[in-house]
């Protein structure tokens, strides 16, 4: 859905581009006429309006005191579609990009101690937080995981600025998954936890923090869960058992849209996988679940799906429609 709210929206110049790690580029954005950029605070993000239908959010990861430029870092996603590919392929120094914001729904609240947990590119919103926590005289530790050391952005800067005892690096190929039990097993009353990273890390951290005081954990997820690329990149078929129709769902359309276009009535409401209205029984085939509702166990049962967002993980699904 396109918002009609034209808050601060400006075309910025890509002033610099460097490779920050394997598959990660860091961009520096400036006003083309050298004007001051809007103020922001650690945790803020901006929307990059890449094309009419393609808007992506990126955290600001530079220094809030620097009003002349913004930094963002973008991970190239594996199968090369969508926003990250656009940024990697098209946003070279000298090009411009439309930017909306900044906004902040991940603000750093005052505390005596912080535990920062980053997974991969999730390091970006935390970088300015580390500076702010240091400036406020708070105690903190950063635990930063990633696939391999080479895939982890800003590692050298972090070590140089903050030293090895505050910055704990945990590439997965050397250390395995983050030891969340050791980090979060015992709630600490005076500590705020800030976590940013892929969905499974957020889920695991949320689970561990359930015994922590409410409000101690801050993550950046609230609206629909960020979903990665679909399992199938091409089209698939859905067979509607009640109506006796077999339809083809192309990659750019939802099952809901295709089924409705074929004249079959399906209830829907949010159309983003959060409300549960379009739940449909699955009679055959494997589902690529992309909703924010089902537990892992329910997903594995493979007997129900939300057709507004979920897709097929096999060539053909059979649905009770």
């Amino acid at each position: 859905m396109k918002s009609t709210h034209e808050e601060s929206e400006i075309d910025l110049l890509v002033a610099d581009r460097r490779v920050a790690a394997d598959g990660v580029v860091a961009l520096t954005l400036r006003h083309p006429a050298g004007e001051e950029l809007p103020a922001w605070e650690p945790g803020a993000h901006v929307d990059l309006i890449l094309t009419e239908d393609l808007t992506r959010q990126y955290s600001l990861c530079g220094d809030p005191a620097d009003r002349s430029s913004w930094q963002i870092a973008v991970l190239q996603e594996s199968d090369g579609r969508g926003g990250s590919a656009y940024v990697h392929d098209k946003l070279n120094p000298g090009t411009t990009v439309r930017v909306r914001g900044p906004r902040n729904h991940f603000p750093l609240e005052p505390a005596d101690r912080y535990l920062f947990i980053a997974g991969g590119i999730g390091i970006t919103p935390l970088l300015p937080m580390l500076e702010a926590a240091t400036a406020a005289g708070a105690e903190w530790q950063l635990v930063y995981g990633g696939r391999t050391a080479a895939s982890m952005a800003f590692v050298a800067d972090l070590r140089a600025a903050h030293g090895d005892d505050r910055v704990v690096l945990r590439p997965q190929d050397e250390h395995g998954l983050l030891d969340l039990e050791a980090l979060l097993g015992a709630p600490a009353g005076d500590t705020l936890v800030y976590c940013c990273g892929p969905g499974p890390l957020l889920d695991a951290v949320e689970e561990r923090c359930s015994s922590w005081p409410s409000g101690a954990l801050h993550t950046e997820r609230f609206t629909p869960k960020e979903q990665g690329e679909p399992v199938l990149s091409g089209a698939f078929e859905v067979e509607l058992a009640q109506s006796g129709l077999t339809l083809t769902v192309p990659p750019d359309r939802s099952i809901l849209e295709v089924v409705e276009d074929a004249g079959v009535q399906v209830l829907s409401s949010c159309q983003e996988g959060t409300c549960g209205t379009c739940e449909t029984a699955v009679l055959g085939g494997q589902v690529d679940h992309r909703d924010s509702l089902l537990t892992d166990e329910e997903k594995a049962a493979n007997d129900t799906m939300f057709v507004c967002v979920s897709r097929a993980a096999c060539p053909k699904l059979v649905l009770d429609l």
Partner: peptide, 25 residues
């Protein structure tokens, strides 16, 4: 009753969209 009424805002929309919607339905 045969119209596709999906997307109406009687239950709101966005993060405050009615949490009781499945029960009402």
């Amino acid at each position: 009753v045969r119209r596709s009424a999906g997307g109406h805002v009687a239950f709101g929309m966005g993060i405050h969209q009615c949490v009781g919607q499945p029960i009402a339905r």
